[in-house]
Amino acid sequence: VFVDDHLLEKVLELNAKGEKRLIKTWSRRSTIVPEMVGHTIAVYNGKQHVPVYITENMVGHKLGEFAP
């Protein structure tokens, strides 16, 4: 499973602090992992960042699938 390192670091850091804030990313190719559930990730679609709230059903899919 591929997840960009910088994105995973941000998610794990927020989980350690117990925070839930918006994470901006250009990494549409990253796979959604269970650690991301409950976070809102702003995924770049080529024009703007689209906020995507991550749920359990999204695990295993790519971030780009949810930012048309």
Rank of each mutant, 00 (worst) to 15 (best):
K62S: 10
I41N: 00
N57F: 14
F66A: 05
V37P: 02
V59A: 09
K20I: 06
E13L: 07
P34E: 12
K17Y: 06
L12D: 04
Y44A: 05
P34M: 15
T55H: 15
N15I: 04
E65T: 10
P34F: 12
A67N: 05
V50R: 10
R29K: 14
V33G: 03
P68H: 10
T25V: 01
K17H: 08
V52D: 00
M36F: 15
L63F: 07
L14N: 04
V1K: 07
T55K: 13
I41S: 00
L63W: 00
G64A: 10
A16H: 08
G38I: 01
D5Y: 15
L63Q: 00
Y44N: 04
V33P: 03
V52P: 00
P34I: 13
A67W: 02
V11G: 00
S30H: 03
I41C: 02
T40I: 09
V43R: 00
I23L: 09
A67C: 06
H61W: 12
K47H: 13
Y53P: 11
T55C: 11
L14P: 01
G60L: 14
S30Q: 02
P68C: 09
K10A: 15
A16Q: 12
L8P: 01
W26A: 11
E13I: 07
F2E: 06
V50Y: 11
P51R: 10
K10E: 15
L22C: 10
V33H: 06
N45Y: 07
E9M: 14
M36Y: 09
T31R: 06
R21P: 07
E56H: 12
Y53I: 13
I41F: 07
T25D: 01
L22I: 15
K62R: 11
G18L: 05
L12W: 08
K24P: 07
S27E: 06
R28P: 04
G38D: 12
Y44Q: 03
E65F: 12
V3T: 06
V3I: 11
N57M: 15
L63S: 02
R21H: 15
V11L: 07
W26E: 14
T40Y: 06
P34T: 12
S30G: 03
T40V: 09
I32V: 11
L12C: 08
L14Q: 08
A42K: 03
E13H: 08
V3Y: 04
L14C: 05
L63E: 00
P34C: 11
L7P: 01
L63K: 00
V52Q: 05
E19Q: 11
G18F: 05
H39A: 02
K24T: 10
L7K: 00
L63A: 01
K47C: 12
T55I: 13
K24E: 08
G46W: 11
E35P: 14
V52C: 10
M36L: 05
T31L: 05
V37C: 11
F66D: 01
E65A: 09
E13Q: 12
I32W: 00
E19I: 13
H49A: 03
L8V: 03
H49D: 03
N57W: 12
D5K: 15
D5Q: 15
G60F: 15
K17D: 05
T55N: 08
V37I: 15
V37M: 14
G18Q: 08
E9P: 01
F66M: 09
A67D: 04
T55L: 15
K20V: 07
H39Y: 03
T31V: 10
S27A: 09
K24D: 04
G60C: 13
T55Q: 14
P68E: 09
E19A: 06
D5F: 15
K17A: 12
P51K: 10
A42L: 05
N45P: 02
N15Q: 03
K10Q: 15
L22K: 05
H39N: 02
E19D: 07
R29Q: 13
A16S: 12
L14I: 03
V43A: 03
V33Y: 04
L63G: 01
T31G: 13
E35Q: 14
T31S: 11
R29I: 15
L8M: 15
M36I: 02
N45R: 08
V3C: 06
H39F: 08
T31C: 12
A42I: 02
L7E: 00
H61R: 12
S27H: 04
I23D: 01
D4C: 07
V1G: 14
K10H: 14
E19V: 11
L12M: 11
M58F: 09
V37S: 10
E13A: 10
V33I: 15
E9K: 15
K24H: 12
I23N: 01
G46Q: 07
V1E: 13
F66G: 03
H61M: 14
N15P: 00
T25S: 05
I32K: 00
A42M: 04
V33W: 03
G38N: 09
L12V: 08
V37D: 05
V59M: 10
P34H: 13
A67T: 06
E19G: 03
R28E: 03
